[in-house]
Amino acid sequence: MKDHEVLERVSRGDEEALDYLYKKHYKMMTRIVLNNNGSEDEAKDVFQDALLVFWQKAVSGKLVLTSKISTYIYSICLNLWRKELDRKSRHSSEEVEQSIYQDYEKNERIKIITDCINQLGDTCRRILTYHYFDGLSMTDIADKLNFANTDTAKTKKYKCKKKLDLMVKRNYSSQDVLD
């Protein structure tokens, strides 16, 4: 089929002409996306969107071709893929910024908690460090600190945790720790 025949048939709503365009130009059009960091699915979506744009313009009567249909569809694919890459780029940089900010906040909270733990007595510092940072069980902590039993270690940990909570609340605002 020649371009003027395809355009005429598409403008009348002939889906077979659209199928013809799809089969004839699929590989060439999807190569745009595949050669520019896109996946097969993204390529297929871009090409289908481009054909939809072509179809809508042709059916509305607003399409005036000054080039081959393939060139026109190619330019639509190119523009759609550029928009998608811009969207991905913005989204990606926002995620990186958010991740950096979250890491900073997490490090600040850890610093606050660590500073307060270091201000506690040696026993409390060791119990809380062993439990929260080293992941030791209460049995291991009781053995390590020569407590009579695990219940003693649990009671001490509870009291130390209360002291830590009070110290943090007294020295820092809730936004410093909770945000």
Rank of each mutant, 00 (worst) to 15 (best):
K23I: 11
R82E: 15
T30C: 12
I113N: 00
L34V: 00
E84T: 14
K144I: 05
D179H: 13
L52K: 11
G135E: 14
K88W: 04
Y104K: 02
L18D: 11
T30H: 07
Y172R: 05
S99F: 11
D134A: 14
K154F: 03
L128E: 08
V46L: 09
I76M: 04
L21E: 01
I32Y: 10
L21G: 09
K27F: 14
K106E: 15
V168C: 06
Q56H: 11
D115Y: 05
D14I: 14
D134Q: 15
T71L: 06
K88H: 05
T30W: 09
T139Q: 12
Y26F: 13
Y130T: 13
S60T: 02
Q98L: 10
Y74F: 13
V6R: 11
S99M: 12
L7N: 07
K88F: 05
A142V: 11
T155R: 03
W55K: 07
Y26H: 12
Y132F: 03
D19G: 15
I100D: 09
Y101C: 08
V46Y: 09
K169D: 04
E84R: 14
N171D: 05
T71R: 04
L18W: 07
R125G: 11
K161Q: 07
F54C: 08
V46R: 13
V46C: 08
K161L: 06
S39T: 13
K162Q: 10
R170K: 10
D143Q: 06
R125W: 07
L21K: 11
A153W: 08
E42P: 15
D179Y: 12
N107P: 02
M28W: 10
L63H: 06
V6Q: 13
Y72E: 01
K68T: 02
Y74W: 10
H131K: 12
R90W: 10
I76R: 05
D86T: 10
D49R: 05
E15N: 15
D165N: 12
T66S: 15
Y74L: 01
Y74M: 01
R87H: 00
G121M: 12
Q175E: 04
I69Q: 06
C160E: 03
D14C: 12
V33T: 02
